[in-house]
Design a protein around this nucleic acid. Structure first.
Lengths: 201, 201
DNA sequence: TCCTCCTGATTGACGCATCAACGATTCTTG
DNA sequence: CAAGAATCGTTGATGCGTCAATCAGGAGGA
């Protein structure tokens, strides 16, 4: 059921399985890291399962119903937020919390598909202005309702408001811990962005 | 701060932003999907942020401290669970909740690195037995403690036991909703597997 | 002005995931 | 036993993400 790279109580003195998968408990090894106890293990497995299934599920719904990949949708959504439907590449990368490279690769493919257009000369000769094409706007306008419906059916419908708030709080705390652990990178430099006003159809 | 493909109140009658990013509210569009209200939006953004940061963080920690990718670690962990350190390819795929193709590609690379070995003849001529090499076993044994420490520091330390349980429950519910939405695939067919006993060093 | 440094963005290489198609083997059934 | 079907695993194409290297434009100082 839970399946997935599941752990296994190794041996020795270490309480139980490691993070979520392993089976290498033993006593030797380095560190005196406390293994996860059964309860913690269940928590981690549940979270792990969510990580492995939610993102792909969202992507698949978009792909299936709108022919857009998750990242493409994110870019189009970001552009659609802007009154002009046009933002600097670097700004978009910051808003998305992505690295420039990642966005650049994606924009190349999206430009080829006609979803966005790049005009290379702003006031700063280095930047590029990314603009939503009409095809891009149609795509996002058509994809949004289904996306919202899906998210609602998958994360909101099965949770009570209290559970939703608890989830938000947990997410915030974990995210904060990740950020102060130095183990992130592009995702962390995000700054501004809020919600302007959507141009819409 | 939250940044990320953030929404934007579009226009019209629709309450607010869509799932988490968009800006294409409008009144037209199809469906009468209820947009997310501000509170829901916050929940979704927090979850979205977690999805985008936790998995990469775990992968980076593994890569940095052990030279293993996340998927590689999962495979090694799965093999290490088995007393023989050897399982059928298809079985491993089921335990991991992965597609056969995905595993096959990964195994090819792992075999090239000497982490695992494939012996092609079991009782069933189609299958392959995947075995942990000594190098593979060393790798997982060395990587596990750091992995557990990281998971502990990032998801358990910042949460009270009550919050952890609430998180588990929320994850279960969302995962269940995903599975009954038909928007998953390989991840969902998992069956058996629990925790045997770890072979360890 | 010229040189240096910083920033903005692209590129190529590589690992990774999905999808569709393909051999291969085993099971099933007439 | 001999199709035909289901299963196992691989492969190739393509999209996606990261990293390191690179090019291009702009900013500050001598």
């Amino acid at each position: 059921m839970e399946a997935h790279a599941t752990p296994a109580e190794p041996v020795a003195d270490a309480p139980v399985a490691n993070a979520a998968e392993t089976g290498v408990g033993t006593d030797s090894s380095a560190s005196q890291s406390r293994w996860l106890d059964p309860r913690e293990r269940e928590v981690w497995l549940a979270l792990r399962h969510l990580l492995w299934s939610l993102q792909p599920a969202v992507d698949r719904q978009l792909q299936r119903d709108s022919g857009l990949s998750g990242p493409e949708y994110s870019v189009l959504a970001t552009l659609s937020e802007d009154p002009q439907g046009m933002v600097r590449s670097g700004t978009a990368a910051r808003m998305l919390g992505w690295g420039r490279s990642r966005l650049s690769h994606l924009l190349r493919r999206m430009e080829a598909k006609g979803l966005i257009a790049r005009s290379c000369s702003p006031d700063d000769g280095r930047g590029q202005d990314i603009a939503l094409t009409s095809a891009g706007r149609s795509a996002i306008v058509e994809a949004a309702p289904g996306h919202v419906d899906f998210v609602r059916s998958v994360v909101f419908d099965p949770l009570s408001p209290e559970q939703q708030d608890a989830l938000r709080e947990a997410c915030h705390r974990i995210s904060a811990a990740i950020e102060s652990s130095g183990t992130c990178e592009a995702v962390c430099e995000a700054e501004d962005s809020g919600c302007d006003e959507g141009p819409a159809a």
